[in-house]
Design a protein around this nucleic acid. Sequence first.
DNA 1: GATGAATGAGCCTTCATTCAT
DNA 2: TATGAATGAAGGCTCATTCAT
Lengths: 208, 208, 208, 208
Amino acid sequence: MEKNDLNTLRKIMNEGKKEFLKKGFKDTSLRNIVKQAGVTTGAFYGYYSDKEALFEALVTPVVSGLRKLFISAQKDFNELPADIKQKIVYNYTSDESKRFIAYIYDHFDEFKLLITCSDGTDFSDFVHDLVEVEVEYTLKFIESTGNDALVSGRITPELLHIISSAYFSAVFETVKHDMTKEAAERYVESLNQFFTAGWKRILEKDED
Amino acid sequence: MEKNDLNTLRKIMNEGKKEFLKKGFKDTSLRNIVKQAGVTTGAFYGYYSDKEALFEALVTPVVSGLRKLFISAQKDFNELPADIKQKIVYNYTSDESKRFIAYIYDHFDEFKLLITCSDGTDFSDFVHDLVEVEVEYTLKFIESTGNDALVSGRITPELLHIISSAYFSAVFETVKHDMTKEAAERYVESLNQFFTAGWKRILEKDED
Amino acid sequence: MEKNDLNTLRKIMNEGKKEFLKKGFKDTSLRNIVKQAGVTTGAFYGYYSDKEALFEALVTPVVSGLRKLFISAQKDFNELPADIKQKIVYNYTSDESKRFIAYIYDHFDEFKLLITCSDGTDFSDFVHDLVEVEVEYTLKFIESTGNDALVSGRITPELLHIISSAYFSAVFETVKHDMTKEAAERYVESLNQFFTAGWKRILEKDED
Amino acid sequence: MEKNDLNTLRKIMNEGKKEFLKKGFKDTSLRNIVKQAGVTTGAFYGYYSDKEALFEALVTPVVSGLRKLFISAQKDFNELPADIKQKIVYNYTSDESKRFIAYIYDHFDEFKLLITCSDGTDFSDFVHDLVEVEVEYTLKFIESTGNDALVSGRITPELLHIISSAYFSAVFETVKHDMTKEAAERYVESLNQFFTAGWKRILEKDED
DNA sequence: GATGAATGAGCCTTCATTCAT
DNA sequence: TATGAATGAAGGCTCATTCAT
């Protein structure tokens, strides 16, 4: 029984993933999943309450995994003394990016699902979540270092949101384009340099 | 009613737009469009070959309009002497952005359609086109100014692609979030400063 | 077109009626109706919003027809002078019954549907409606003739309800058992005599 | 839990009763019963062959209990000398009714099941049985007392059936409406007076 | 006795599209 | 041009029941 249970569930998950990847959430039919998996619709509903529940099951672990990874990195950094933060912020970002990319490439299919095939699910803009976390911690960082960008109005939360969105969009382009992990690392490194310059520019006083 | 009868096509387009905006391309049913428009399915098929053709008709003009605007700006700039280009590049970008934003806000619904409701159509990533144009012209710019970023491998087309994607994603966040035109202009201005810094950083020699 | 329209609708109604009659509302499947009717599911939904809508369409005309007939008879009687009412009440009932039975037998299938096959629909206790009308008018009759049965508490609305239910149940037994119209008339006539005696008994003073 | 584990059968019966009462036989799903009962489908099928078998088990004891009670009362009465029967028939009915009501209220849920939730089962008109018994004994009574109602054709078995149906319908309205036992007793007493008058009327010679 | 995964036919309903008029 | 009835495949999902363990 144990063996068979795992098999059916595994088959459903595997084929579900494949189908979602191939056609996207909305155009994937349950019937097709179970047919490909060689099981019946009834069997499916023994495991999941509906199509979205399967998608969720496929994707939730990595969503919260990434989120946890990301938040803990932000938290750890945030708890450092202000002067240290100031000094290491860009290097820290670089290290963090590497772990971020590593995590993504350890669960590539799932991120592909999230980025490319999630329309019609609750995950259709999961990036938004990350953006919000980043914005939150960026605000904390700016405040804690005594930077005047916020109080002067040079930066607003909305602007941070937009910049952050730009950043994550760029990062997930690696997934959209099926880059190799190595390429992704290289590009994100460059991207970081690019963004670092940007951050420096808007965190420092205007000199237009 | 007489006046209303006059334009079946207009009614289809209006209601189609409304429905697509409300539910997205895939979840919009043709029957609902024609019902709302007060016409029949048969009438619809007199104008469009299918549901996607209507979406296309709604969106194609602004897609190519923006594309044309964008390309001509890039072309005009590209045809300037290298030293001039070098000097004015960032100001030029700023002006171009304003026209870009103006165009978007003159056709806000259509861009909303493209950004938010196009999943399932050929326009699901229409930004890609713009990115490619930008990459193409950025390459030309770099080459024509004798910058060594490309030959040194510091920059690759893929990296340009990613940065460009980031930029356009950010720009279209204004649409996603229903910003006012004025807010959008402000944010994109800031965004430009941010990206300008980035460009400077990666176009200049490494100094890590 | 007219001819075909009528045919499809008629076929759906006819076969729907047959199927409902054969299996009852809940056990009748739409698929079977349309299959028997030689049309498609899509065609069905052009006419009715769902299975219950078809049942309703089949049955509503006679439900309200009978109700109207019944109410108007009750009203007419109720508007007579009290002494006349007193005198003719039982004969009046007899005449009314005949028209009632006539109406039922003019729409026998529909009443069979209502009595035997309506479980799961809003008509599952349509008799209740008739009972309430009868109770309402019986109360008026008792009051208007100065009878003390109500004020003395010898009769209550609940008791009237029960007796009325008994009466209509009995009447519709004719349908349940597929009696001929002639048999039905005879039985209801006897039933009326039976109930008349009962009414006399409880409307008159207790003499236990 | 230990105690709870002790009686799988009881749990099935309890939850089955609850579910049938809540949704009716057809709309009750076996899966839901076993889920509520905290047992498995397999366990269920160890006790009952199918869903209807459970319903039957729930309801059969009281059906035959009532039947037995009813038949024995009828038999006892029937075995009395004709002249005695004649004299006491209506009082006898009254006493019998009390025991009848008592029995119903001792098994209220089961009767509710029978009256309100049995559609789709063989018990959907369990009253029929009682009616037939009553008709049978009424015929015997009429014959044994030498009444000419039958031979004269004034009364027929079908008429008896209808009147009997009316009576039992009325009695079970108490269950349909969740009357208290006391109210039920009162109403049935009134009902008996009502029906007694009716019986007298049709057993005696016509005098219209 | 009991498990509970699996069956698979069946349910109602929606859809883009066609076509005779 | 326009009608709108009809198509019929496909959708997600539920169900009583079985059976290997």
